[in-house]
Structure formats: structure tokens, C-alpha cells
Simulated assay, not measured.
Amino acid sequence: MDFGLSQEQQMLAESVARLLRELCPLNHVRNVVESESAVSAQAEAALAELGLNGLVVPEAYGGLGLGMLDAAVVATALGEAVAPVPFAGRKVLAPLALIEAGSDAQKANWLPRIASGGVCFGVGLQGLVTRRDGSGVSCADGRLTGLALFVLDCEEADHFLVADDNGQLYIILAQSEGVEQIALRTIDATRSICGLRLSSVPAEALRDDGGKAAQRIIAAGRILLAADSLGAADAMIAQAVAYAGQREQFGRVIGSFQAVKHMCAEMAARNEPCRSLVWYAAHAFDAVPEEAPLMACHAKSHLGETGRIIARTATEVHGGMGFTDLLGLHYWFKRIGFDRQILGGPETVREEAALLQGWIARAA
């Protein structure tokens, strides 16, 4: 039995990686960020031409009909290129929410438009994981009121998918009266994040399933963030190894020193097992759904810790140069830091994993 990626998935990964190498090199990423945007228009357009807007949208609605493992493969390539492209929320979580909890009419209305790029979603689910003072969303008479923080992929979004405090999912129009977007800056300038202050905003509710769909979408988001960290860690290891083979000290390349060899080997040894963990979590989302929440927690928490160690070690291999903007290593460092915290840091997610396994009691 083959436990690796299929030939089609390998081709998808290579196609996306090759496209990003051509259209989204580091200088382009730097230019996008310095323009105070978090979206590369040329990379976004090229990915749309590959059909990635409809990556997980069923073929019946004009999409590719692919699964979470395919999405994780794309997320890994995006993380490796530190690409400023809205992906997780806009191209995966929003359509998955409609697939999971939308009525037939809602699917027919929204999914073809998502696949064609005719509608762009931002996604706000962070309040179901961790909540800051003053945040939270409630619904009364079909209208939402409250504050949703850390909404993903908000730049250029014309609609938002948000959850209330009970886990019920809603769609709102970005330009509706009563919607105020609050600019939020995180350490990762390649992601567009905002807050939404809602004042009696009319909302289209998805099916009320007691929050089950929202929890499944959160699991999907955690898998994608873990995959993004995996790709970012791959890139940092490759850059550290390349630098160690070029930089000279005392007449020798530093890669010939045993201490540097050990640092590079340790990074590779830590990161490689993460690949199968992410792949299995993505596979479980589609094929073994009862395992998906727990596996998503494992992948998210483990990649959060491993990614941090690799980011730190790769920077150390570069010495003082690792902290400069000249090399741009900090883009990957910050990307991993963002992935670590959004939708739950390692401590939060491990506690949830313990609850799922019955190791600790749920608070009353």
C-alpha cells in the first residue's frame, strides 16, 4: 500500500511551487508588504487560473472537487514561498462551511461564485477558540451584533463568514450598514487580518447543527495552518543549509563545523516526521472524520512547537545576518509565529485534544 501522495497530488504541489517561484520571489513579497497590502495580485490571478478558487468546491458546482490533502499540499507550497495570497479562509474554509452546513439553495447560490472568483470571503472563527475581553457575536432576529477578532483573508473580501458565540455560522455582506472593519496588525505582514464590529447587521444563517460544522471548519483551518508551517520550515532549513555551505569562518565554510552540521541535521530530523502527521490529519478530515478533530489538534500543536524551534535554529545558523531584512528570513519566521497562534496556540489546542480523549474534565 502506498502511503505517500498520489501522482496527481505531486503534480499539483510541483505546479503551485513552480508558479510561486516564478511570480512570487522574495523581492516581490517584500514589495507587496511594503505597499501595505497582504495580497499579491499577480500570484492570486495565476492561482485562480489553476482553478484553486474552486479547489474543494464539488465539480457539480464548477469546482475541482478535491479534498483536504490536496488543500494541504497547496498550503505547504504557499508557506514555502511565504506567498501573500489569501488561501485558507477564502479558498477552503468558506466553501467547506457551505458544503457542510449550507442548504441546497445556498450551495447553488454561493459555491459556483466562489469557484469562479465572483465572490471573495473573509472568515471569522477565532472567537470559538479563544476570546478576548469585549469580543463575541450574538444573533437576534436574524441580525448580528458584537465584535469578531482575527478575521482571516479580509483584504478585498466582499462577504464574511462569521460564527456567533454558539457556533452558528452566518454570511454577511461586507458593505452592509453596521459593519465596521478594524485594522489589525500581526507579526505576519503576508496575511490580511481584521476585526469586525457588528451593529445589528442582517445575516444569512447556515444550517443550525449545534456548532458541529463550525468545529469541523476550525479543524480544517488548523490542518492548513500546520501545512503552511511545514512549508515555511522546509524553506528555512533549505536556506540555512545553503548559507552554511557558503559562509566562511577561519578559512572554512561553516557547514564543515560539527556544531553547525548538528543544527542543520536536527532541524531536518524534527521537521520530516511532521510531514506524515500533516498528511494523515488531512486524509482523516476526508476519510476518517471521527478522527479529524483530534488529528487536527495534534498537527497544529506539534507543528507550532517544531516550527518555532526550526525558525530559531535556522536564524542562529545565519548568525547576525539572520536578523537582517537583507536576507528576508524574518518573513518565514513571522509566518510560522502567526500559524502557531491563530485558531489556538499549542497549549490551547493540546487542552482541547485532552478533552476529546477524555483525559480531563470539561469545565462546567
Rank of each mutant, 00 (worst) to 15 (best):
G358V: 12
E34A: 13
S229N: 04
A269L: 07
G358I: 03
R362F: 00
L47R: 05
G322K: 00
V317T: 03
E34K: 11
E266Y: 09
P95Y: 09
Y280F: 14
D228R: 07
A81I: 06
A71D: 02
H298L: 15
R350F: 01
P273Q: 11
G79C: 02
I254H: 02
T348H: 06
R143P: 00
D104W: 10
W332Q: 09
L149H: 01
G251K: 07
G210L: 03
A189V: 11
S116Y: 12
M236I: 05
A235L: 02
D158Y: 00
V162W: 08
L12E: 08
L47D: 01
I342L: 08
E180L: 12
Y170V: 10
F285E: 13
G89A: 14
A203E: 03
A108R: 15
A60W: 00
K334N: 15
V129C: 11
D325Q: 12
D133R: 04
A174W: 15
P86T: 07
G51D: 05
A268N: 08
I99R: 14
H159T: 03
F333G: 01
F257I: 02
G195N: 12
L225K: 06
H262S: 11
V129H: 12
L356Q: 02
Y170W: 15
L277A: 09
L355V: 05
S138A: 13
L152E: 05
R30Y: 06
Q9A: 13
A48P: 03
A88C: 08
A81N: 05
M68T: 02
G178F: 12
G345E: 13
Q168Y: 05
A101Q: 14
T190W: 08
A97M: 07
A361Q: 09
E44G: 04
A81D: 10
R362L: 06
G320N: 11
Q7R: 12
H298D: 12
K300D: 13
Q42S: 11
D209S: 07
L69R: 11
A282T: 06
Q246R: 08
L20T: 08
G118D: 14
G63M: 12
A265C: 07
G51A: 06
E177M: 11
G328D: 01
V82C: 14
A311C: 14
I310S: 09
C139Y: 04
L12S: 03
N27C: 10
L47A: 07
V179P: 07
N27D: 15
A203G: 10
C120A: 09
A281S: 14
V317I: 12
T145A: 02
S103Q: 10
G255D: 06
L19E: 09
C120E: 11
M263I: 11
D165Q: 13
V32C: 15
A157K: 08
I171M: 01
A227P: 05
S176C: 06
R21A: 14
D70M: 01
E291D: 15
C274I: 05
L128V: 03
V317D: 03
A94E: 05
N27K: 15
V123K: 04
V201G: 06
G62E: 04
G117Y: 08
A354P: 02
F250T: 01
A296Q: 11
L128F: 03
L93R: 04
Y280D: 15
G304I: 12
L19N: 07
A83L: 07
G62V: 00
R275W: 13
A244K: 00
S35T: 08
C297W: 03
L69A: 04
G134S: 00
